[in-house]
Amino acid sequence: MGDNTPQLVLSSAPFQKRPVDTPLVMRHVLYSLIPVMLAAIYFFGISALLIILVCVFGCVLTEWICSSGPLRNSSLLDGSAVLTAVLLALTLPPGIALWMAFAGGVISILLGKILFGGLGQNIFNPSLTGRAFLQACFPVPLTTWAPNMGFDDFFTLRGDLFTFPFTTPHFDAISAATPLARMKFDREATDLLDLLLGTTSGSLGETSAILILLGGAYLAYRQFLNWRVPVGIFLAAFVTASLLHGWDAGRHPDGVFHLFSGGLMLGAVYMATDPVTSPVTPIGSWVYAICIGVLVVAIRQFGGLTEGVMYAILFMNAWTPMIDRVTQPRTYGTIKTETSPGDGND
């Protein structure tokens, strides 16, 4: 022991662990969303960009104001507010007034997260809470869809984005029905290729199924996403829709259409998989996912709304604590396997 003996630190084991923490997960989910965001900007031009930025501003500002002291840095730096904002933006129609998007961001964080005690404590998905709030307050702007115009019209706003706060935006120019609305009200199917590529009208992020699936596949590969949830939703929605289609093909579209239309892709891959508001147990995940899949098709086909993903997920979020409670994993050694038959032990 010389003079250069270092000061040794005592802590309890372990001293080595896989370096995964919350900000890393959030960052990678955001990375995986970059193609989806770029597609939104490609399809809906500067409107999409503005809506995303305004949502981020609303969410991060609320998070900053509501968190204080030592909590402030941790909850801002973990990246969860930005992720909530991006996911909220992706559920909004391209022509929504920016002040509404901002309000949605504030509500997402405030009602969706902070009121419950911050990250990890909330019962409902914050982004969907924000969207449900907007849907309830402004049903018309939330269901008015600008047509998908492609990149040529980058600087054309897709609606009355700059309406003064608390005034109603005007909808005189352009609107187009989403594939689900066309199916529901006009019995008119949309080409599958359009659904896959996203060259249809809809919310910012519910257009390109392929990009969402790619993002999800990346997250599942990195084990940042519970693959059981999207797989369960896809299977349940497909089977339910196919049964209905087989029963009455005139009234009910087939399973493939359901999978690739509306918010199902985005909801199944990015919203329902929100770890905070979905079950932690493997069996619980399957129960939760299958219920969502069935509910989505049921709401779409038998409800008054054209879209059912948001309410299906929020409804199942409420059931998550209950599902977790009844699907606890079986602890090692708790089922009697004392001796195999014929071991001759007393």
């Binding site: 630190v9 802590s11 309890s12 372990p14 001293f15 080595q16 662990k17 370096p19 995964v20 923490d21 919350t22 900000p23 997960v25 941790s74 909850s75 973990d78 969860s80 911050g118 990250l119 990890g120 404590q121 084990q223 940042f224 519970n226 770890p275 905070v276 979905s278 932690v280 147990t281 493997p282 995940s285 606890q328 994993p329 079986r330 602890t331 090692y332 050694g333």
Partner: peptide, 25 residues
């Protein structure tokens, strides 16, 4: 690691359930 790294809120990502060799929660 125990002191150099920050502890963040649990987001219930369930990685711990997939890791636990005695199947706890």
């Amino acid at each position: 690691l125990a002191t150099d790294r920050k502890e963040y809120a649990c987001i219930r990502c369930s990685a711990c359930l997939d890791a636990c060799p005695v199947f706890l929660n």
